[in-house]
Amino acid sequence: MVSPDRELTRPLLGVLFLGALIVASFWILRPFLAPAIWAAMIVVATWPAMLWLQASLWRRRSLAVAAMTVILMLVFVVPLVLAVGTIVSNADEIGERLKSFSAFRMPPAPEWLADLPFIGPMLVQAWQQAAAAGVEGLAARLLPYAGSLTKWFVAEAGQFGFLFVQFLLTLILSALMYARGEVAASAVQRFALRLAGERGEHAVQLAGQAIRSVALGVVLTAVVQSTLGAIGLAITGVPFAALLAAVMLLLCIAQIGPSPVLVPAVIWLYWSGETAWGTLLLVISVVVVTMDNVLRPILIRRGADLPLLLIFAGVIGGLLGFGLVGIFVGPVVLAIAYTLLKAWIEERAPEA
């Protein structure tokens, strides 16, 4: 007869060994976890597009994988390189513009501003206070926050090289997943089925819907808006169009919209006397801003219905927790958790 101590020791040592093996595996694969998660999200979201390309390219999976890899490179790597190149090549011009900004003096408030109902007098008063303080007063107010903001920007800028390497790893892993997507999906479904039965398999399907919802309803809309906005900035001659396009992409993903970039650009063109270009950019800006209310609902219906506050929290939390990669990973993780929690709450208890 086996003693109780021996019966307890064997499963305990087995669990400890298995736990140590899992922790060691994750520790070894830690540099590849973020690119692997990102690649999985991209592949799940764009899998229908890859199948369409495969059907169009003589049903050759290799050609479809190559085409999708090139498209991902154009979408992710090229904008990053253009933004960094713009900053490096125009560093001197940016410094000169910042120096000339110190001599800027605000004009008197326009007359129509005071005629606005409810908020007109407050806006005029704020305008007058800003004009009286000048750039020096504004700089003095922003000085306490400048140190922290500069440290954060330097830290993030120092990660551009590491981020570029992660982009390359993501492209490589995405190509591998495209090539063996059916096998990987079957393995994930079998694991979920083994772990939680039919509920686990259903959870995998809901997670895929959440990923597609974020990719189509949020990321794709942001890419379209920032691309059209960048074309408008480049046509009208606004400086640093590539850098402003990258800022627009981040703002659109965060559900803030492209207005914080496009509105000042339109004002700057009118201020510089470029009335025709300013009017053209104004028309483009109206189209780009209103596109959010038309394109995103159409795309988001293809996936799960997600609240915008959840996406915003995912973008901000992902940025603070994981850096620039978290802008994409954060909303997807929260969307998956929200979808699974909602499905679990709405699931009816089995009949007695």
Rank of each mutant, 00 (worst) to 15 (best):
G95T: 06
A215V: 03
A40N: 02
D292K: 14
N90T: 13
G147Q: 09
A49H: 12
I22T: 07
I327F: 09
F26A: 10
D115Y: 04
P117F: 03
F17L: 10
L282N: 04
T9R: 15
A45H: 00
I256Y: 01
F160L: 10
W268E: 05
G137Y: 06
T227M: 09
A49Q: 15
I311P: 00
T86M: 08
L143S: 13
F32V: 13
E201Y: 02
T339I: 00
L309K: 07
E136G: 13
F322L: 15
V43K: 00
I345F: 05
R296G: 01
E346T: 13
M122P: 03
V247I: 15
V266G: 00
L12R: 13
I298V: 14
I37Q: 03
V70L: 14
I235V: 15
P258C: 05
S56E: 11
T236C: 13
L340T: 02
M291N: 10
V214G: 01
R6M: 06
L193H: 08
G278M: 09
P4Q: 06
E156Q: 12
V165G: 14
V15Q: 02
I267M: 06
V238L: 07
G137I: 06
A157S: 13
I256G: 02
A276C: 02
E274M: 09
F26V: 12
Q205V: 06
V315D: 03
A343Q: 03
L250M: 12
T221D: 12
A24Q: 09
L57I: 01
I94Q: 02
V223P: 00
A130L: 15
F328Q: 02
G217E: 09
Y270L: 15
L163M: 08
D292W: 10
W271D: 12
G197C: 04
P350Q: 07
A230N: 01
E136P: 02
F164M: 12
W58C: 08
V81D: 05
R302Y: 12
V88N: 03
S272Q: 06
F322M: 15
L282A: 14
A67V: 08
G197H: 05
F191C: 11
A49E: 13
H202G: 01
A66C: 10
L243V: 12
M73C: 15
R105M: 15
S102Q: 05
D92P: 08
P350R: 07
L51A: 10
Y178K: 00
L74V: 13
G273F: 06
L250K: 04
L63Q: 10
E346W: 06
E111P: 01
I235M: 14
A126C: 08
G257C: 03
L21M: 07
R180W: 12
L13N: 11
A67D: 02
G134C: 12
P4K: 01
V44I: 14
W127A: 06
R61L: 13
G147V: 08
Y145D: 09
S174Y: 01
E198S: 06
V266L: 06
T221K: 11
Q128D: 15
A352P: 13
A343H: 03
L171A: 04
A20I: 03
W127P: 04
R97G: 12
E201H: 04
A20M: 07
E351W: 08
R180E: 11
A349S: 11
A352N: 10
A91E: 05
L281F: 09
L251D: 00
Q129F: 06
T227I: 11
S259F: 10
